[in-house]
Structure formats: structure tokens, C-alpha cells
Design a protein around this nucleic acid. Structure first.
Lengths: 358, 358
DNA sequence: TATGGTACCGATACCGGTATCGGTACCATA
DNA sequence: TATGGTACCGATACCGGTATCGGTACCATA
């Protein structure tokens, strides 16, 4: 903790050479070579005799030398930072994506820098602007619906841009995710195929969580195609949670008790819906079928089966990391620009395969 | 995306000055001042006339100038990076801590860099070593039980070290969290006070999640003090999950059906335990009281009440950020070194206040 | 005995900013 | 008319590394 320029002689005698963090120059002097040779030795590049290399490494180890990546990156004009912007950390979805990204960078020497936008496009832009000043070698953002100004910012950054989670739109550059419109369509088809006809919808924060809105729109497209529609909806401005799902479901069923299926903006909301039904003594799924989105681990352990679309969150993160790793090497033209995932619908009898609509 | 040295003249005519990212020097030339004056103007420091300032800012905006923090930090010997190492992102606990840290840095200009150690001390050390090369102005790590080699690494870093979550041990420097030993003790006292006598324990990954082990040890201390003990335990090496809690509980109750209380390593496991009891038709909490740890949002919506200790995860993150913000200013001696949180026990009748053991 | 190749190493410039010191213009005051 | 102060700005050095070029020693070969 001490950053003292003057250190008592006794400290040196005790061998505390590393009180002030040593530079490569100091390591080089210690090893009796030039800075350049020390640099080569520590990086393991050619043109260094093994005796010299050993001497430098020994000195660096003894002095607790830690390289300075600021200088390295500035000098070599290369960075290993990857900026990542996600909208939220308040449910498990994005943490799993981040874990996938982080794991995908293992062994590559790349380092992810995360920012949380709270589903706020202005805050997202500020975070991106801030992160770009670190000269990242790539940037990963969530969704395809950034405002024009943010898109401009990303384009001017002159680095690979990966847009995550959503495929329904025009990507700037690279794109990894799934079609939420199709996910909503597929779920509706599956539920109708399972004999459900009287649908309700419970959602939250649709103005900010655009992907949930796309699922709902897809779902409604299929309902309309079958001459159906939502008999009732409950949408709140707050962010999704189990408690909110429970509350909105209870309220909705008080008004329209004869639904046979409720579609939720995600699994948190749907789990709350299940708990509401249990409290009301409504049989799930016999009387009301509950359908969410995400395929959270939670869902598999719930006391009654609910339907959901399993989104491969960790795999999406890992795929994004792979795209970055490929994109930062010189011959980029051959790399894939888009990676498409397709969620699997589970929790409806006879429907453990991918959804029927292609 | 293009990093081309040669740009068709037409591009310039269209005003695409920013194809190659401009430097401060180029902005300065454009504004007709020196690099130094441009630097002052953009930073808003004194000694720049308002006309000059406006001219520089105008040029920078027009050219899409983005400062280079690598150069800034190297030159000024100051960084705004804060390294953060957490063990896991697979349940909501650490994402909430990270969200708190991130929010705590809002407006400070500081930027958190996250790493995930997967509860692996070797990986944790590698991550720390890697992050230190970015010359962070502070580092936040999880827990107090790093091996000596890691502690040495942190000490040599010569920056404030904040250890999160746990208070049961000797901190290197700053410390924010709660006593997990005391949390286990308090929960045991409360459960005994509620009349429970025949206890079971269900946990996971105790060899890696040391804080869960400390809670269990505290719980057992109180049991012993009352002449009690765990009638049965189920501990698995896998990481905690709802599914694992359900599975272990089902297995344990098959062997020892007459328990009246089960303590779990955390709320995920406990929720699984509840679902197991529901499947077995066991009344919760009448027959078996289920107790976890964390106070997840999930718990409040569950179909039956389970006891838990509410840990203020986001607040811990925010407090850590505050410590960092105070620690990086020069007069640090007056700052608080430790911030103590105390979990609140909920879900036991008549026990909504803080636990009784101090 | 020249000549050329290889192994190994160092000098120098540079990455893109900021800290520091000092210089000029201009005005007010003795 | 000197003198001193203020506002504003630039030259220079430097942060801690790496890229690049070239140099020396030494050995093998013509």
C-alpha cells in the first residue's frame, strides 16, 4: 500500500527490492542486459540465449516484476481488452452470458470489461464511449436496436462489433443470438397444437426489454393467424421478477378466470404465475398451461411443469467470444458474420424438440 | 471496421475525416493550437481562453475524437480501472454484488474490470496477476482465505485491496461483508428458539465455497452448545443448484424421515428442498422447517415459507465501491477499513428482526 | 585468407497522451 | 517609463513498454 519514494536502508537489506513496483528497465539492469533484451526474454521471443533468458526471468521473479499492459498496448498498438455491455444483472440471464464470454476468452489472453446499461440507451452510449477510450480490440453489445447515434459511435470505433442475443434486425457487423419473433411464434404454435385456445399475457418493462416485446409480437402473429388473440393482458413498467409475475397473474385471474394458457415475458414472471395458480388452487398445467421464456434451471425443479423456450445463454456468450477471437486475427474476411441459435421448447407434452415453425 | 492507411479522395470530400481514429495531435492541428492546449481544452482545465476551448471542442467533435486512456494513464500515472474478482456467475449472488459495485462507481469515472475464478484459487491468482498488469487503482477480491502466494501478489501490487463478503479472518487491507460464522450461529439460535430439535444439513461444494462452510460450522457450534447436532447430512461436490437441493433432500428424507428442520448451504439448495418436500407431501414449515441463506427474491414468492438470512449483496458491492473511491484519494488514513453488515433472519414466525446472537 | 551466415544483443524512435517549466503579450500601476 | 502580474499558450521531457534496424562476435566455407 505504501507508495514511498524513500525507503529505509534496512528494508533493502531485508531484500524488499519490490517496494516500488519495478520497471522492465530495472529488471534489465539487474540482469545486466538492455531493456530490449529483457523484453524479449520475458516475452519468450527469439534471439535470446537461454542463459540470458534465465537470468532475466530470475531477476524479474525475484523483483516481483509485473508487466505494464498500458505501456505494452500503447507501444505495440495492440490490446487484449474486449468491451462488453449488457442491460442488466438482476436476473441470471446476462450473468450466464458473461460467464460464457469469460470462459470463451480463457487461454486467449483476452480480457473482458463489463458495463451495465440498466436498459437505458443513453447510459449505454456513455458506457460505450467510455470503454472505447480504452482502445478495446472488439466490443460486444446487447441487441440490435441501438439508436443511430450509438451505431455511429460503434462504427467509428473501427473495431469488430458483436451484437448479442437478438437476430431480428440489421446487425452492424457480427451477430450472435436467436430470433425472438420466431421464438414467440414457435411457442404459440406449440401451445395451440397442445389444444390451448384462451390465452392471457403477463409481461413487464416491454418498453425497455425489446426482445420480450418481439416474442410477444411473434406470439400474437400466430394467434391472429389462427383467428385467436389474447383474451387479457397485464403489463407492468417495472422489471421482471417472480414477485411481479405472481402479483399480475393473481390480478388477471381475478378478472378473467377462464383462461387455459398464459404466456409470460420470461421464466421469472412465469414462475411467479405458477406460484399464483398454486395459491389459487388452479391445476397447472391441466387447467392453465403456463409458458415462459429462457429455460432457467429453476423451471426444471418447479413443483408443476411449465413450458419454456430454452435459450442457450452460455453458448451465446461462448460463441461471441469465439467470433471475437477469429475477428481480431488479420484474415477476417472468411469468418462467419452471424451465428444463429434456435431455442428448444420444453414443458409441453410431446414437444421436447425444437419448435415446429422454421 | 476498416483500418486502411490509404483512403480514396472521394471519402475525404464526403467529410469522412474520421476513417483513421484521430489523435489529439491531429485535433490540435485542426484547431490551430498545440497538442498541450488541445489537451487542456478537452479536459476543461484552466489556462485556455473560451474561444480556443470552443474551437478545440468543435474540432474534436467533428473528427469523432475519442481520447486514448492507455496514453492518458501511462502519462499521468493514474488509472480509473478497478479489478474485481468473483468466484462465480452461476447464481444471482455475485451478479448482484457486481451490479452494486458498478452502480457505486457511477459518476466517479471509475471502471470495473471483472474476472471469474470458478472457485479455483489457482485460476484466481492468474486472473489477479493478469489484472494487475493493467495497473488498476484498486482491487476487489472475494473472501479472506486466499493462499499466501496470492496474498503476497496483492500486497506487492501497492494498491488498496478490498476483500468482499466475509469478515471471518484477517483482511489484507479493506474488508466489507458479514460474518458467516455468526450468520450460521444466529440461524441455529432462531430455529432452536422456534422449537426445532432434529436437524438435517444439505450442502454442496463446501471444499470450495468456504463461506458456506463457515455458516455450517457456526450453526453446529450452537447446536452443540444446546446438546444437539445434525441427525443427518448430505453434501455433494457439485455446485449449488435448485435441482441438487431437491435431489439431496429427497435422498436424505428417504433415510431419515423424522427431521423437523433442514439447514441448507444457501437458498438455491433450500428452494430445491422445499420442492422435494412438496413432492413428498411433507408440510412446510409445519412438519419440516427449511432454512437457507441469502434472502433471494425467489424465496419471498415461494409457495411455502422458508427461513433465510438476508445478505445485503448489492449494498456490499456499493460499499466496496465507496471504500475504493475514498481509498484512492490521498488522505486515506482517516478512512474506514472495515464495513460490517449483519444479515436479517426472515421466514421464522416472530423472527423478522436481526438474529439474537451479537 | 576473405566472405557470408547465424546467433545474440542494443540504440533509437515511437505509441499518444500529460506534467512541468517557462515564455510572450498585454495591461495596470508606481 | 520601468515593473510586476495575469492570461494564455507551447516546448520539452517523460510514462514504460515494443518495433525496427543495425551491429558485433564467431564460425563454416570457398
Amino acid at each position: 500500500m505504501k507508495r514511498s519514494g524513500i525507503v529505509p536502508a534496512a528494508m533493502f537489506i531485508e531484500g524488499c527490492l519490490g517496494m516500488r513496483k519495478p520497471t522492465l528497465e530495472e529488471v534489465a539492469v539487474e540482469a545486466g542486459v538492455s531493456k530490449m533484451t529483457a523484453s524479449r526474454a520475458l516475452r519468450g521471443v527469439a534471439d535470446v540465449s537461454s542463459e540470458t533468458r534465465d537470468r532475466v526471468i530470475e531477476a524479474a521473479t525475484r523483483m516481483n516484476y509485473v508487466g505494464n499492459r498500458l505501456a505494452l498496448s500503447l507501444s505495440s498498438q495492440r490490446t487484449n481488452l474486449v468491451a462488453v455491455v449488457v442491460p442488466s444483472m438482476s436476473n441470471i440471464v446476462f450473468p450466464e452470458v458473461l460467464a460464457g464470454i469469460s470462459a470463451g476468452f480463457d487461454g486467449s489472453g483476452m480480457q473482458a470489461v463489463f458495463g451495465i446499461s440498466d436498459y437505458d440507451v443513453v447510459k449505454e452510449r456513455e458506457i460505450i464511449r467510455d470503454m472505447l477510450s480504452w482502445q478495446p480490440c472488439a466490443i460486444i453489445v446487447t441487441g440490435l436496436d441501438q439508436p443511430e447515434e450509438t451505431v455511429e459511435l460503434l462504427r467509428h470505433a473501427d473495431i469488430p462489433v458483436i451484437q448479442l442475443m437478438d437476430l431480428d434486425g440489421t446487425p452492424i457487423d457480427f451477430n450472435v443470438g436467436l430470433s425472438h419473433g420466431a421464438a414467440g411464434e414457435d411457442m404459440a404454435e406449440a401451445l395451440i397444437a397442445a389444444g390451448r385456445r384462451r390465452f392471457g399475457y403477463v409481461g413487464s418493462a416491454l418498453a425497455r426489454d425489446l426482445r420480450a416485446g418481439k416474442r410477444k409480437a411473434g406470439f400474437e402473429r400466430v394467434l391472429r393467424a389462427h383467428g385467436l388473440g389474447f383474451a387479457e393482458q397485464r403489463i407492468d413498467d417495472a422489471f421482471s421478477s417472480i414477485a411481479l409475475g405472481k402479483q399480475l397473474t393473481t390480478a388477471m385471474l381475478a378478472t378473467v378466470p377462464d383462461l387455459d394458457c398464459i404466456y409470460y415475458s420470461n421464466d421469472d414472471m412465469a414462475s411467479g404465475g405458477l406460484f399464483a395458480c398454486m395459491e389459487l388452487g388452479i391445476a397447472v398445467p391441466q387447467k392453465i398451461l403456463i409458458a415462459g421464456f429462457n429455460g432457467l434451471d429453476l423451471v426444471a425443479s418447479l413443483p408443476a411443469p411449465i413450458a419454456t423456450s430454452r435459450s442457450p445463454r452460455r453458448a451465446i456468450g461462448e460463441a461471441a467470444a469465439q467470433l471475437v477471437r477469429q475477428a481480431v486475427v488479420p484474415d477476417r474476411d472468411a469468418t462467419q458474420k452471424t451465428i444463429v441459435f434456435k431455442p428448444t421448447i420444453v414443458g409441453i407434452d410431446g414437444c421436447e424438440a425444437a419448435g415446429p415453425v422454421s
